[in-house]
Amino acid sequence: MSDNILQIQNISKSFGGLQATQDVSFDVKEREILSIIGPNGAGKSTLFNLITNFYKVDSGSILYRGENIVGLTPDAVCLKGITRTFQIARPFPGLSVSDNILVALLAKSKSVEEARDKVPAILEQVNLDKKAHFMGGQLTTLERKRLELGKALATDPEVLMLDEVMTGLKPKEMDEMMDLIRELQQHMTIVIVEHVMRVIMTISERVIVLDHGRKIAEGTPQEVTSNPEVVSAYLGRRSGNAGN
């Protein structure tokens, strides 16, 4: 039990008549890389929003180190140690890149000075040190993604939840990002929502497959990709995705 940092137990959520998440349960082990995959509209981002309490679950519980965090506000979830990124990166457009990072550092810093001292290290980590004085809104898509990651790292999370950080990256950039994620794994648990199969196969230790809001498979990347139900969920709707 003790090596499960996060336990998702029977959570469900519907919007109006649409069942976005249906009785989903899984555990996240300490210091693992867990991927969540599934076709478009499978409910991956919704799941992120539920775990971080941006949406309130209709039923079920979410245990973080054994404590139920359902009902907390999103900021409290972050302070507990779970930080998420957004699928479409959301820099603070009117703040400079270094202030973006500074703001993210503040919540867990005793003073503004202490936070300010930590900014350069994080900028370097996500390779944005040369853009420190740019406005968040001036960055390219790739830079926005890096800033998004930098902000998340600045909150010093125990569980880092990355929502499609690879989308739009060139193969070389993907390799860099994967190296970074492996490095991060030394210090934290990582949950990834991802479309790019190559990434999932390479870095994840375990994979959860969602379809229509339900969990249809769980296992190692190899187990999951050979699961007939997973194959039909992907191929049944469209086929373009797995080629990457």
């Binding site: 971080t52 941006f54 506000t73 999103p74 900021d75 409290a76 972050c78 302070l79 930080t83 998420r84 990124t85 957004f86 959301r90 820099p91 603070f92 457009p93 009117g94 703040l95 202030d99 500074l102 703001v103 993210a104 503040l106 919540a107 867990k108 503004v112 968040g136 902000k151 998340a152 600045a154 909150t155």
Partner: peptide, 21 residues
Amino acid sequence: RYYLEAIREDQDAAAALGISV
């Protein structure tokens, strides 16, 4: 002031960083 600026720019993103909106 930093918190308020972050909230002004994007309050969900601010909340995700542990800022109580």
